[in-house]
C-alpha cells in the first residue's frame, strides 16, 4: 500500500519536472534546430530538425570572424582568471586569518562593492583609464573583469581559509618557512576547491559579459564573442536572417556548454560552494 503511494507521488514529481524542463528548453531547442537549416529556409522554426545543413553556421562563422573573436574571448577570460585567483587568494589571506579591525574592514570593503552596478561607474572608470594613460585594446576590459570579481573571490577564499588548520602553518613556521612560502606552498594548494569554484563562477560571467568590451573596444578585430553578437542586433526583427542569427547564438554559447557537459560535477559544486560556505 505504502509503496504504491510513493510510486504515484514519484510519477507526479516526474510529470512536473518534465513539464518544467520542456518549458525551459523549448526556446533553446527551437533555436538550435533552426540553426541547422539552410539560410533560405523560412518555414516555421517550430518544425523541429527538418533539415541538417551547416550553411548557416558557415555564414555565421565568417560574419562574426569566429577564430579572431574566439581567441580574444579566450585570452581575456583566461588572463583575467589567472590574475583573479592570484590577487584574490592573496587578499583573502589576511582577511581569513587575522581577527583585527583592519581585516574586518577589508572584508566588508570588498563585499560592499557587490551592490554597485557597472553602468553606474563606467564613465568615471573611463576617465580613470584616461588619466592613467591606459590604452584601449582588447585587453582593457580585463581591468574591469578582475576588479568586479574581487568581492566574490575574496569572500569565497576567506570562507575556505577557515577550513585550513592554523596548526599546519604553525608547524611550517617552526620549520623556518617565511610568510610568502607558507602562503604559496601550504595554504594556497589546500584551497584548491575554492580555486575551482572561483574559476567556474567568474569564468562564466566574464566569458558572457558584453558590457565592458562594448564600452572599451571599438575595433572589430578586438571584439570578444558576445560583442561580436551585437552587430546582429538589426537581424533579430527579420525572419529571413534568423537561421544565421541562431547559428551565431550557438557558436557563442558552444564553448561554455561543452565545458559544462564535461565538468558538470565541478560546475554544480562550484556554484553551490560560494553560497554554502558563506
Amino acid at each position: 500500500m505504502k509503496n504504491k503511494k510513493i510510486k504515484a507521488g514519484n510519477l507526479i514529481i516526474h510529470i512536473i519536472l518534465i513539464l518544467y524542463s520542456i518549458i525551459t528548453l523549448a526556446p533553446l531547442i527551437t533555436v538550435f534546430s533552426s540553426s541547422f537549416r539552410t539560410i533560405k529556409n523560412q518555414a516555421s522554426p517550430l518544425i523541429l530538425f527538418m533539415e541538417f545543413s551547416m550553411e548557416s553556421y558557415k555564414a555565421a562563422f565568417t560574419k562574426m570572424a569566429f577564430p579572431v573573436v574566439f581567441m580574444n574571448s579566450f585570452l581575456t577570460t583566461a588572463g583575467s582568471l589567472v590574475v583573479i585567483v592570484i590577487i584574490g587568494a592573496a587578499a583573502a589571506y589576511p582577511i581569513g586569518r587575522l581577527q583585527t579591525k583592519l581585516s574586518k574592514f577589508l572584508y566588508y570593503f570588498f563585499i560592499a562593492g557587490l551592490v554597485i552596478p557597472a553602468q553606474m561607474v563606467i564613465i568615471p572608470v573611463a576617465q580613470m583609464f584616461n588619466s592613467l594613460n591606459i590604452p584601449y585594446t582588447r585587453f582593457t576590459p580585463m581591468f574591469m573583469f578582475i576588479t568586479c570579481s574581487m568581492p566574490f573571490t575574496t569572500f569565497l577564499y576567506a570562507g575556505f581559509m577557515k577550513g585550513v588548520p592554523v596548526e599546519i602553518e604553525e608547524a611550517a613556521y617552526m620549520d623556518g618557512a617565511n610568510l610568502f612560502k607558507r602562503f604559496t606552498q601550504i595554504v594556497f594548494p589546500l584551497l584548491k576547491p575554492a580555486t575551482v569554484a572561483v574559476v567556474i563562477t567568474q569564468g562564466i560571467w566574464i566569458w558572457n559579459d558584453y558590457f565592458f568590451p562594448m564600452v572599451f573596444i571599438t575595433k572589430s578585430r578586438q571584439f570578444s564573442l558576445p560583442v561580436a553578437m551585437i552587430q546582429f542586433l538589426g537581424d533579430r526583427e527579420n525572419p529571413a536572417q534568423w537561421n544565421v542569427l541562431f547559428a551565431s547564438c550557438f557558436l557563442c554559447a558552444l564553448p561554455l556548454i561543452t565545458l559544462f557537459l564535461i565538468f558538470q560535477k565541478q560546475f554544480i559544486g562550484g556554484i553551490a560552494a560560494g553560497a554554502v560556505k558563506g
Binding site: I87, G88, A90, A91, Y93, F109, F110, G113, I116, V121
Partner: peptide, 25 residues
C-alpha cells in the same frame, strides 16, 4: 605566526579595487 605583515598580501587587490570601483563611485 599570524603577523600583521600579512596585510601586504591584500595590497594589489585593494589598490585595483579602490582605483577602478570604489573611487569612481
Amino acid at each position: 605566526v599570524m603577523t600583521n605583515k600579512m596585510f601586504w598580501f591584500a595590497v594589489p587587490a585593494f589598490l585595483m579595487y579602490f582605483t577602478f570601483w570604489i573611487f569612481p563611485v
